[in-house]
């Protein structure tokens, strides 16, 4: 043994000591100083997973809404919006499920909200209901005509649109969409069997339009005018197109 040591050159012994100390320190640090959770993947992953699991939840999921809002929930689930979860429109509601009185999720009623999904875009799948927000009943909030929990395209009575499809389509995008054809047109039953002989009537006086648009009428949110002094000798529809009334942006 002694012979072996004397045979090893002197510098080698010195170097071995230096390197030995160095690696000893590294091994010591790795072995005893570095916390266990950094070395063992199992442990540090557990702590990472726990941290991840502790993250705050913001979206409550739609199932829980039914517990209180069962009416709206059931209505929604039968209509075209059945695939939508409540938080698509109402926003994250976890806080609301915990403190129902302190935090109320917003219900977007403005016109700008629905077009986020329903504006026409050639990239959207065919068949998905889309509108042109500039032409489609401008300025009116969507929920005036469509119930967001049970949205439906508004339809003209089948009997009229069978022949007057062009008018029906025009009217569907207008302010007058909610008015049925017969509100303005006097249509005898015979008009359906012999449309050319027995014609549907058009308003001959201003009274009909005045019932909504006169300055003294009680109907809200429609343009008002002094119907009986405005526009000289003409009947309203001779200047205005009632199937797509002009919009007067003020």
């Amino acid at each position: 043994m002694k012979i072996f040591f004397t045979k090893v050159p002197d510098p080698i012994i010195r170097l071995v000591i230096v390197f030995g100390v160095f690696f000893g320190v590294i091994l010591f640090v790795r072995g005893f100083v570095i916390p266990k959770e950094l070395k063992e993947k199992g442990i540090h992953r557990t702590s990472a997973i726990e941290r991840e699991l502790a993250s705050e939840i913001h979206y409550a999921g739609s199932g829980i809404c039914a517990e209180c809002h069962d009416e709206e929930y059931d209505l929604k689930n039968e209509g075209y919006h059945q695939k939508l979860s409540c938080e698509v429109c109402h926003g994250p509601a976890m806080e609301h499920t915990e403190e129902p009185d302190d935090f109320t999720p917003p219900a977007p009623r403005q016109r700008k909200f629905c077009p986020e999904c329903h504006t026409y875009n050639p990239s959207r799948p065919t068949g998905f209901p889309q509108i042109n927000p500039v032409a489609h009943n401008p300025l009116r909030p969507c929920i005036d005509c469509h119930n967001p929990h049970d949205p439906k395209p508004l339809t003209v009575p089948r009997e009229c649109s069978a022949c007057h499809a062009q008018i029906a389509i025009t009217k569907a995008g207008s302010h007058h969409v909610m008015l049925e054809c017969t509100v303005c047109h006097d249509t005898p039953d015979e008009h359906k069997s012999t449309p050319r002989l027995i014609r549907a009537g058009k308003p001959v006086k201003r009274d009909l339009c005045a019932s909504c648009h006169d300055k003294d009428s009680g109907v809200k949110e429609v343009p008002k005018i002094d119907v009986y002094t405005h526009g000289e000798k003409y009947v309203c529809w001779q200047c205005h197109s009632p199937h797509m009334p002009e919009v007067n942006h003020e």
Binding site: P9, D10, P11, I17
Partner: peptide, 18 residues
Amino acid sequence: SLFSTDISEKAVAFDKKA
């Protein structure tokens, strides 16, 4: 020099080899 002192010809030859 890690307190080494040996600069004999043999030691220097070993350095060169190393």
